[in-house]
Simulated assay, not measured.
Amino acid sequence: MNKDQVKGSMKQAAGKVQQKAGEMTGNQTQQVKGAAKQVEGNVQKSYGDAKESMKH
Rank of each mutant, 00 (worst) to 15 (best):
E52N: 12
A21D: 12
S53D: 07
V39G: 03
Q30I: 03
Q28Y: 12
T29C: 04
N27W: 03
G34A: 06
Q28K: 07
E23H: 09
E23K: 11
K20P: 02
K20N: 08
M24F: 06
G34D: 06
M24A: 09
E40R: 04
N27V: 00
V32N: 07
K33V: 13
D49E: 11
N27Q: 08
N42F: 02
E23N: 05
Q30W: 10
K33G: 04
K37P: 01
V43D: 07
K20S: 03
K20C: 00
Q30M: 12
S53H: 06
E40F: 01
A21M: 14
Q30Y: 12
Q30D: 11
Q38E: 14
A50R: 07
Q44M: 12
K33T: 14
A21P: 06
G26P: 04
E40V: 01
Q30C: 04
Q38A: 11
G41F: 00
V43I: 15
Q28A: 06
S46P: 00
K37Q: 06
K37S: 10
K45H: 07
Q38Y: 08
G41V: 01
G48L: 11
D49H: 01
G48C: 08
A36M: 14
V32R: 09
S53K: 13
A50Q: 11
E52V: 15
K51T: 15
N27Y: 08
Q31R: 09
N42Y: 08
K45M: 09
K20W: 02
K20L: 12
Q31E: 14
N27T: 01
Q38P: 00
Q19S: 08
Q28W: 05
G22D: 07
V39D: 11
Q28G: 00
E52L: 15
S46C: 03
T29S: 11
D49G: 02
G22A: 03
A21Q: 10
K51A: 09
K33P: 05
Q19T: 00
E52Y: 15
G26S: 08
Q28P: 02
N42H: 07
K51I: 15
E23G: 07
A21W: 05
V32Y: 06
S53T: 15
Q28H: 14
T29D: 13
K45N: 14
Q44K: 08
V43Q: 07
G26I: 01
